[in-house]
Computed example of a mutant assay.
Amino acid sequence: MARRLKNLEEVAVIGAGLAGLSAARQAARLGRMVTLFEASGLYGGLVATLGEVEDLPFPGTWSGQDLAMHLLEQSQKVGVRLIDAAVERLELGDRISLADANGATYAPDAVIVATGGSLRKLGVPGEEEFAGRGVSRCATCDGGFYRGKHVAVIGGGDGAVHEAMTLSRVAGQVTMVCRSPLKARREHIDKLDARDNVRFVWDSEVTAIHGDMKVTGLALRNLRSGEVSELACDGVFPFIGIDTANPLVAACAGGDPRIFLAGAARAGFGGTGIEAMAEGVSAAEAAHRFLSGSK
């Protein structure tokens, strides 16, 4: 039987990325009782893997982890309650019913869904087998293991270019495998172009990751010619986009006025850190107005 807790929260925030942390802090600052749920323990979400967060509206240089910890500390100072557990069930009846992975149930008056996204997988042989043994999704976390070695970054968007820039500072060689021309911002491309240890394999996709005890190389296929080739490397960093699919978001598709979406959980999200923070604040203010009886 589920263990019921006293309903201490008016607002439940699901997800502690930049949007969720900003939403929780703002809702608490507006006088609401707030409970924040985070399944992974990775506060800040994907931004926590960045060595530097750009385009922030305040001075200084911030790593993703520093920014996340700052928002977390600010949230705790204004009374946000943290639950390190996934939300496994969300039911929208006359009262909202929410259950976490620990078997506790809650009945918030409003819910802000800020579940963010996860890095999309390549879906090729060897990807799961060599996870943590040459396959990584965090250059800031794991780049030091590849000092002087050859690594491959898969993708051509802002995330991939950012990872390649970070890795180029420690790796001997960085090869970017791209299906199409780079889609990153021009300023990022120009910075990458200035690195003399970065090269590109164009119009190609990864078909397999090879190795023994650890990664030794990739199988590639040229999308234009169909030619198959091998790329020897010591590490692989796939950054081919963000998957925002989440069953909780699907459960909120009916437009219930008690549910608010923020960040990557919302269709049309722009993808930057400052947008995530702004959307979290906006969602908190909308929830506050709803609970106050304002339109």
Rank of each mutant, 00 (worst) to 15 (best):
V170T: 05
M165V: 12
L182M: 13
A208V: 03
L72Y: 04
A278H: 12
H162C: 12
S40K: 10
Y43C: 06
I240C: 00
S282G: 14
I14V: 15
S136Q: 05
G44I: 03
K183D: 14
R81I: 03
I83P: 03
M165S: 11
D196W: 04
L98P: 00
P57K: 04
I189N: 07
A19H: 04
E88Q: 08
Y106Q: 09
E187M: 15
L46G: 07
V87T: 08
I240T: 00
G226Y: 00
A48E: 02
I189D: 09
F260W: 00
A184D: 14
L218N: 02
R147M: 04
G217Q: 02
C178M: 11
A251H: 10
R266E: 15
A86C: 05
G93E: 10
H210A: 07
P257C: 08
C252R: 01
L21A: 08
G103T: 06
T272H: 07
V206C: 09
R120A: 04
L56A: 10
E10Y: 05
A139H: 03
G79A: 06
A219G: 06
I83A: 03
H150D: 05
R81M: 07
V206W: 02
L71A: 10
K149L: 09
G17W: 02
G270E: 14
K214A: 09
